[in-house]
Amino acid sequence: MSQNGLLTLPLHAVAHGRTGDKGNTANISVIAYRDAGWPVLLEQVDEARVLALFAPMGATRATRYLAPGLKGLNFVIEDALQGGVNSSLGLDRHGKTLSFLLLGEVMVTCPRAAVPEGSPYLK
């Protein structure tokens, strides 16, 4: 797993986040645990990767916003909720669970310092 001192891990190892919804649009924050994780997010977690993940569920567009003060990205993903609370037939109409789909499916290559001390990913 380690290469040049770098680790390849799910985004979940270096960032946390939460989903919000407005109509059929989801927003998912991706916030670095450590300063060393912020450049990893900026360089590797882009609109194309996020849209590719949610396109099978119907998403048509992903926009990435930056909140440098929080070391956070905010993805706004249109048509991600199959109609959302108004009309989705799915179980999770708000898309509340989607933040963990993103954190689990996107892989990143990062320095060890981007992962919090004591993280199960370092064991």
Binding site: T25, N27, S29, Y65, G72, V76
Partner: peptide, 24 residues
């Protein structure tokens, strides 16, 4: 940090009746 970005779109333009807030 998680709650600041909750249900937000552009962090530099959070629209409410009273103002436009910028948390970037």
């Amino acid at each position: 940090a998680e709650q600041i970005l909750y249900e937000m779109h552009d962090p530099a333009r959070y629209l409410v009746p009273d103002c436009v807030a910028d948390v970037s």
